[in-house]
Design a protein around this nucleic acid. Structure first.
Length: 856
RNA sequence: GCCGGUGUGGCGGAAUGGCAGACGCGACCGACUCAAAAUCGGUUGCCCGAAAGGGCGUGUGGGUUCGACUCCCACCACCGGCACCA
């Protein structure tokens, strides 16, 4: 141990010097590596703590300070409570910003990325985060991304990775495709440009195969994940239950299937609509008259010129063209005209719908626009005017014919979507909506023209990107047009040197221009072949990184299933709500795939999830462009790591946004130096007998021991800090005006402060622990149990209420019985005065806390 | 439009159905100081009152209860997600 250590921790006048304390302990932690997770021989129960890993965009910011503080608090608390804790860190280091920075500076994205990583690593060290530094990963290392390629090939084998040509979201600025999840309000999530649709052949992961499991398994997470996130995922997956119905098409051999959530309204179908950008529309048009073909072509072009924003505007009038083709309603043989209209989406359901204008608002708007017939088949006045508000059994139709007249959708323009009874529907007449759905589905199934079916809002995950800085897709395009995996022993397919490559976005991957890199051989024939020039969405990287932390440096497998069994799933996961859909949905998907492969024994990756709020400034998000950044390294320099950590932890509930204007680093600093001074003031030796100490102070200490673990589990970190402040205040009082600094209770309490303060202010806590005469590290010390005898008070304050208002308080024994308490209450001077002669008609006694009198 | 969440002092926020406002920030008063800063002590929900004391108070209106920030119903405001998804 360096001889200057103890001296260095004191300021010029012997006061508390946070910077010196900080430097001293960081050095010792770096040397001793105390937060390394225990290995296979460690018999303690395990806990896996994880904060969503950072993107190396520059120096750490206040959002990081908050995020990794919270996970560190939990990790430290679990260590104190006897767990073998894994608290790893890595970097999500592939992605566009590095590439864009590289283009701007004409540099290699690698240099930018790894320089930023180094800066962030140093930042975490100086923030006192108790990471296990032996497991660091960077997704841009070939040692990591080779396992992305391995994963891709496993998905390919299972038919879960495939290529298709389809209209895709295209960002005209970043010049790359985007996943559905990366389009926010019609704009590119990254750069904000308006997204357009483009028809391209791309790689997809078949996440829709897992839609039901992704939806149903959310039930398991209820209570452990934020309700909001669960709900958002449910909406995103968007399962609709209904039926597929097959329609014959005149002049076409194959039937067209439509999906409907309201098969009960089949008798009300008066036309059919197909998505203009679907193959079906093109085919139907081409089989029609030249005039129709021309009008359709014009319409299609207009539609394709629209941005997503324009298309999503539901207020605009319905447009479409008649294709002069007809479908046959399978239930009654009616001839339905077929239209192409852009309110029908090509990639939902089957890209075609049966239009029931009386009972669907969009169909109604369209029918009224183009003068198509409207037929009511559900009498919605039946439940509304009848005696039974909700129909459980089938019953008679509405008697009142005027009612249905007054709500005629053709006149009101309002579709009838509510409950009701079927009319004009043959065998369905008189049935309730629900019963009619069941009946018609059975009838269609019997006739072979339909079946129960589900549809999802969720689309397959588009994972290929036309950019350089990502994982190369490990596939080979052969001369004869086959697409085959790169042999596993040739993985990883490494990125080429970026020097000499034009990385500027141009709509195709820059890798395509690296001709030497592109040239490869057909693994089967040895003939010349080409690599796939695209790279993977970086969300592939982050969909399984939590497993790689379990097998760092393992070069034979992505992760060791035994280690996964030991540590995973993650016990505590924390990150911003911006990943509520993207990352969390993808990670859940990949986990289920790995489960199906038998590589993990769980189906959900994150057992509990917390979304921390944002750090904002003056009510708005901080951003470089607004110039309202509070800089992490400046705050560290002026207030020190501990003050910053305490101030953030104390600022409010974890989930709430924290306005930096309300975060008091100076208050935190004041508290820390008060805490530190208490450790200096203790004059007793470590072997004192606590039981001989001041009982009042001991009660405060033990109440905290009793409360702290539960409060941490509930992530009420701000309350724990408040309790610590109370304890420090109580110790101060005992030292100055009570039992004095030599009292054993003062030592007992000061030690408690050091052990619990370690969660928030680890440097100060270590310094206190040392001052109290112990060896480092307080961060590894087991917490004490509360003494139950110190948790029960001798006397309590009982409250006397009269007609619900507090009219008196009584100091009574905690063991007082109800009758005695009531007698005391009745005799109390203030109570008697408040009663003013009124008679007590009822007394409720909850000894020893409450007496409640009612009067008349 | 559909789904979800949140409303508590000047501010951040506490509160198993049992004294609302813990803890802190800010403010005010005082001690120390030539003075200031730092530090320490005190006061601080609003209204009436010299005080004792009283009245009112957790978005609004109802309800359940001896007792409601907490539970139920309706409404208002704000925030978030989805949105021509058949």
């Amino acid at each position: 141990m360096a001889p200057t250590d103890t001296v260095a921790a004191h300021g010029p006048e012997g006061g508390y010097d946070p910077q010196a304390v900080q430097a001293k302990w960081q050095e010792r932690w770096a040397a001793a590596d105390p937060f390394r997770a225990g290995g296979a021989d460690d018999t303690r129960p395990r806990k896996y703590v994880l904060a969503m890993f950072p993107y190396p965009s520059g120096d750490l910011h206040m959002g990081h300070a908050e995020n990794y503080l919270y996970s560190d608090i939990v990790a430290r608390s679990w260590r104190h409570r006897g767990y073998n804790v894994l608290n790893p860190i890595g970097w999500d280091s592939f992605g566009l910003p590095a590439e864009n920075a590289a283009i701007k500076r004409g540099a290699d994205p690698r240099e930018w990325t790894y320089a930023n990583i180094d800066q962030q690593k140093a930042g975490f060290r100086s923030y006192g985060v108790s990471f296990d530094w032996n497991r660091v990963l960077h997704t841009s290392d070939p040692e990591y991304y080779q396992w992305n390629q391995w994963l891709f090939q496993r998905l390919f084998e299972r038919g879960l990775a495939y290529r298709k040509e389809s209209p895709v979201n295209w960002c005209p600025v970043d010049q790359t495709v985007l996943a559905n999840e990366q389009v926010v309000d019609g704009h590119c999530e990254r750069c904000g440009a308006e997204v357009i649709k483009k028809k391209l052949t791309q790689w997809y992961f078949r996440i829709t195969d897992y839609a039901d499991r992704l939806l149903d398994d959310l039930n398991q997470l209820e209570g452990f994940w934020p309700h909001k996130v669960i709900q958002m995922q449910r909406n995103w997956i968007g399962r609709s239950v209904g039926a597929d119905i097959d329609f014959e098409i005149e002049g076409r051999a194959e039937k067209v299937t439509v999906f409907s959530t309201r098969p009960d309204t089949l008798y009300g179908a008066t036309f059919m609509v197909v998505a203009p950008d679907s193959d079906l529309a093109a085919e139907l048009a081409s089989g029609s008259t030249p005039e129709v073909r021309m009008r359709f072509q014009d319409y299609l072009e207009t539609v394709q010129k629209q941005t997503e924003i324009e298309r999503q505007n539901t207020d605009r009038p319905k447009t479409g063209v008649f294709l002069d083709r007809y479908a046959i309603n399978p239930i009654n043989g009616e001839r339905l005209p077929i239209w192409a209209a852009d309110y029908v989406l090509a990639d939902y359901g089957h890209g075609a719908v049966m239009a029931v204008p009386a009972h669907d608002q969009r169909d109604l708007d369209f029918a009224r626009e183009f003068g198509l017939p409207i037929r009511v088949v559900v009498d919605t006045t039946a439940p509304a005017t009848g005696a039974i508000p909700v129909i459980a059994e089938d019953g008679p139709l509405s008697e009142d014919a005027d009612d249905i007249e007054s709500i005629d959708p053709a006149k009101t323009g309002v579709a009838l979507t509510g409950e009701g009874r079927l009319i004009n529907s043959g065998s369905l007449d008189g049935l309730s909506k629900r019963n009619a759905i069941t009946r018609i589905t059975e009838e269609l199934e019997a006739a072979g023209t339909g079946r129960a079916s589900k549809s999802y809002r969720l689309r397959d995950w588009l994972i290929s990107r036309q950019r350089f800085w990502g994982t190369p897709i490990p596939m080979v395009h052969t001369e004869d047009g086959r697409i085959v995996p790169v042999p596993e022993d040739e993985l990883p397919v490494r990125l080429p040197d970026a020097h000499g490559l034009d990385l500027a976005p141009k709509g195709t991957s820059p890798l395509g221009a690296a001709s030497e890199w592109m040239a490869t051989t057909d693994p089967e024939t040895g003939a010349a072949a080409l690599r796939d020039p695209d790279t993977m969405d970086t969300f592939v990287d982050s969909s399984w990184y939590f497993l790689r932390f379990l097998s760092p440096g393992n070069d034979s497998v992505a992760f060791d299933p035994t280690e996964a069994q030991r540590w995973a799933p993650v016990d505590f996961y924390i990150g911003g709500v911006e990943h509520a859909i993207l990352h969390l949905l993808y990670a859940r998907f990949i986990t289920k795939v790995l489960f199906d492969m038998g590589l993990v024994d769980f189906t959900e990756p994150f057992s509990s999830l917390i979304n921390q709020g944002m750090v904002i400034l003056g009510g708005t998000k901080m951003s470089k462009s607004k110039g309202n950044l509070v800089l992490f390294h400046e705050e560290l320099a002026t207030h020190g790591a501990d003050a910053l950590r305490v101030a953030l932890a104390f600022a409010g509930p974890v989930e709430d946004d924290k306005d930096w204007a309300d975060v008091s680093t100076t208050g935190a600093q004041k508290f820390l130096s008060r805490a530190w001074r208490i450790a200096q003031d203790v004059t007793s030796e470590p072997d004192v007998v606590w039981a001989e100490g001041d009982v009042a102070l001991r009660r405060v200490t033990h109440r905290l021991w009793a409360e702290a673990p539960g409060l941490i589990e509930q992530t009420k970190f701000n309350v724990v800090v408040a309790r610590l402040m109370e304890l420090v205040n109580a110790i101060r009082k005992t030292i100055d005006t009570g039992a004095g600094p030599a009292d054993p209770a003062v030592r007992e309490a000061a030690e408690a402060v050091a052990m619990i303060l370690d969660l928030f202010a680890p440097h100060t806590a270590e310094e206190m622990w040392e001052a109290l005469g112990y060896e480092p590290f307080v961060g590894l010390v087991g917490w004490r149990q509360a003494d139950p005898t110190l948790l029960v008070e001798d006397t309590v304050t009982a409250v006397v209420q009269i007609d619900g208002k507090v009219r008196g308080t009584l100091e009574v024994s905690a063991k007082i019985d109800g009758a005695d308490l009531e007698a005391l209450a009745r005799a109390d001077e203030r109570v008697v005065r408040s009663l003013a002669g009124r008679e007590i008609t009822r007394a409720i006694v909850r000894a020893p806390k409450v007496v409640s009198f009612s009067t008349n």
